[in-house]
Design a protein around this nucleic acid. Structure first.
Length: 494
RNA sequence: GGCGCGGUACCCAAGUGGUAAGGGAGAGGUCUGCAAAACCUUUAUACGUCGGUUCGAUUCCGACCCGCGCCUCCA
C-alpha cells in the first residue's frame, strides 16, 4: 500500500506519489512572527511534522520549505508601537517560535523569510502586471485581477463566476476594480515601514511571499502544500491564482490542511480565557511531550478538543509507553526467542504503517502501539519475553517514536528554559508549583539518586523499613520514583 | 444565506453493510514489607432523533435536532 492523503483541491483522499522520482517537494505555511505561538498554531505544525516524518520514514527524499512571515500589518503596527524596527521586533518572536517548535520536537524545515525576498516579490508583481493579471492603484498598491483567472475558487469551492470585471461591489473599495481583487503589494501609509523596490515603495501583500518563495525553492509545480484550514481561503486560493497566472502551470498537486482545535469545547479566543500559548501550558507544569502526544491523538482532519483533562490523559498514556521501554531496557531476560512476540512486534509495525498510510490516522497508530504494549507486558509478567525478542519490541517502539517523537525523556531542560524565560520577562507570577516541582526533579544528579537508592536498598535488606521508607519519601518529594522489581531496583524521574 | 465537518460508553477517541479499536477514569482482583509498575475482570443489546433502502445499518440515502469551521490577513 502507498500513502493516501486527503487533497483539499480534489476534495478526496488520493494516493500520493511525488512528481519526480523519489523526492517530495513540500511547502508549509509557517508562522507570522508577531507574538508567541499558541496551541492551535502548534496543532498544525505538529500535523505537518507527522507528515514530514512519515514521508522520510517511508523512504522519500524530502525538500521541505517553511516560510517565516516577518512582515505584515500587525508586525508593522506592533513594532512601531514598541519603537522597534520590523527586524528587531520579528527576530524576538521568530526565535521564540523556533524554541517552541523544538520543545515539541518539531523538525526544522528549510526556512524562508519574507523580508529576504522583497525584490523578487516586486519583480513577480511586475510580471503579473505585464500579463494584465495585476494592476496598479492610484496610491501605488497593486491588486490581482481575479476576473482574469477563471480557476479562482477551485480550492475553496467558491463560485465567483457571477462577478464581472469592473463590478464594484463595495464603494469603500474604490481603489480596486473588483472588491474581491486582493492586494499583491501595499503602498505605505504615512509613517509606515516600507521597502524601496522596482515597483515603488511599499510592502508585499500577504500571499505573494508564499508564491515567490515556494516556487523559488521547489519549482513551478511541486507536490505538497500544507497549512491550517483557515488558509484555504483566501490565502491558498490567492496563491494558486498568482502562481498559475504567472506560470500557466499547475502550482501544487496536493493541498494538505489541518483542522482547527477547540479548547475546552470552544473556539480558542482571548475573550473566552481559553487562549493558551505553548509557554502558558509549560508554565502550568505541562510537559511538551504530553502536549505533543495529545496533539497527535486525533487525526489531523478531525476537530481536536484540547482539554486539561485530555492533557493529563496524554501524560498518563505517555508514562505507560515510557515505562514499557524502561522495562525492556532495564530487565534481564532468559535466552532464546518467542515466536508469538516476534510476530506481535512485526504486526504492530505493519499496523502503524498502514494506519499512517491511511491519511495519517494517528489515532489508530496509537491504538496499535498500546495493544502491543499491553500484550507484551502480559508476556513479561509470565516471563515469556526472551532476549531475542527485546530488540524486536524496541524496534517497534522506536519506529513509532520516529513519527510521534514523544518517548525521549527530554522535557526537563525545555521546561527549565521556559522557567528561565518567565523569570527574565517578569512573568514570575505565572510560574506554577507544578512547573517548579517538575524542574526540581531534574536537580538531583543520577549519581546522587543512585547513592540514595543504594542506601535505601541496604536498609531494606536489613529490614529497617522505617529508614528505607524515609529515603523513598525523600526521593518521591524530589520527583524520583523508585520501583522495586524482581530484577532489582529501577528508578525514573516523574 | 453559500460551502464543509462532526454528534460512538463516565471522559478522550478509532472504525466497519453483518453485529462496537485503543487510552484515561472508576470498581474488584493478582503481585507486593511499603510504594510503584504491570496484568486480569468489569463499565455501549448499542453508535444524536425519526424515517427509508437492505436478508441485515452505527456504517448507505432523506429529513430533523445539536455542536463546529470557512465565507473579513485567526493555524
Amino acid at each position: 500500500m502507498a500513502l493516501r492523503l486527503y487533497n483539499t483541491l480534489s476534495a478526496r483522499v488520493e494516493e500520493f506519489q511525488p512528481l519526480e522520482n523519489n523526492e517530495v517537494r513540500m511547502y508549509a505555511c509557517g508562522p507570522t512572527v508577531y507574538d508567541y505561538g499558541h496551541i492551535g498554531n502548534f496543532r498544525t505544525f505538529v500535523a505537518v511534522d507527522i507528515l514530514r516524518r512519515f514521508l522520510l520514514q517511508s523512504g522519500y527524499k524530502l525538500r521541505h520549505v517553511m516560510n517565516i512571515t516577518d512582515v505584515d500589518d500587525k508586525i508593522i503596527r506592533n513594532s512601531a508601537r514598541e519603537g522597534l524596527s520590523v527586524k528587531e521586533y520579528t527576530a524576538k518572536y521568530e526565535k521564540a517560535f523556533l524554541e517552541d517548535a523544538a520543545a515539541l520536537n518539531i523538525e526544522t524545515p528549510l526556512l524562508a523569510r519574507a523580508t529576504d525576498h522583497i525584490d523578487e516579490m516586486a519583480r513577480f508583481v511586475h510580471e503579473l502586471e505585464k500579463k494584465d493579471f495585476a494592476y496598479r492603484a492610484e496610491d501605488g498598491s497593486y491588486y490581482f485581477r481575479i476576473a482574469k483567472f477563471p480557476g479562482y475558487g477551485k480550492l475553496s469551492k467558491k463560485d465567483f463566476s457571477g462577478m464581472e470585471d469592473g463590478a464594484r461591489v463595495d464603494v469603500d473599495e474604490y481603489e480596486k476594480d473588483n472588491a474581491r481583487d486582493f492586494a499583491l503589494w501595499k503602498a505605505p501609509k504615512p509613517g509606515e515601514a516600507f521597502w524601496e523596490t522596482s515597483i515603488g515603495r511599499g510592502r508585499p501583500g500577504w500571499h505573494i511571499e508564499c508564491s515567490v518563495m515556494s516556487m523559488r525553492e521547489l519549482g513551478e509545480t511541486f507536490d505538497l502544500h500544507a497549512g491550517g484550514e483557515d488558509l484555504i481561503f483566501p490565502h491558498h486560493e490567492n496563491e494558486i491564482a498568482q502562481s498559475e497566472a504567472q506560470t500557466g502551470k499547475p502550482f501544487v498537486r496536493f493541498w494538505f490542511h489541518a483542522r482547527f482545535l477547540l479548547v475546552e469545547g470552544q473556539k480558542m479566543s482571548k475573550s473566552l480565557g481559553n487562549f493558551f500559548t505553548l509557554r502558558d501550558l509549560v508554565l502550568k507544569g505541562h510537559r511538551p511531550s504530553a502536549i505533543r502526544f495529545l496533539l497527535t491523538s486525533v487525526p489531523y482532519r478531525n476537530q481536536l478538543n484540547f482539554t486539561f483533562d485530555g492533557l493529563h490523559q496524554a501524560a498518563s498514556n505517555l508514562e505507560k509507553l515510557r515505562n514499557f521501554r524502561l522495562r525492556l531496557t532495564s530487565e534481564k531476560f532468559s535466552s532464546g526467542s518467542n515466536d508469538a512476540i516476534a510476530q506481535l512486534a512485526r504486526e504492530t509495525g505493519e499496523r502503524i504503517k498502514s494506519a499512517l498510510e491511511d491519511d495519517l490516522n494517528t489515532a489508530q497508530a496509537h491504538a496499535a502501539i498500546f495493544e502491543m504494549v499491553r500484550k507484551a507486558n502480559a508476556a513479561f509478567d509470565v516471563a515469556q519475553i526472551r532476549q531475542e525478542d527485546v530488540p524486536l519490541l524496541l524496534a517497534a517502539v522506536d519506529k513509532f517514536d520516529e513519527i510521534f517523537a514523544v518517548m525521549k525523556e527530554d522535557d526537563l531542560p525545555k521546561m527549565q528554559a521556559v522557567l528561565e524565560w518567565a523569570k527574565a520577562t517578569g512573568r514570575e507570577k505565572d510560574i506554577s508549583p507544578a512547573l517548579l516541582e517538575a524542574v526540581n526533579s531534574g536537580r538531583l544528579s543520577d549519581s546522587a539518586i543512585e547513592a540514595k537508592i543504594a542506601a535505601m536498598e541496604a536498609a531494606r535488606k536489613a529490614r529497617k523499613f522505617d529508614v528505607s521508607d524515609r529515603i523513598r519519601a525523600e526521593l518521591t518529594a524530589a520527583g524520583i520514583i523508585v520501583e522495586n522489581t524482581k530484577e532489582g531496583v529501577r528508578w525514573r524521574r516523574k
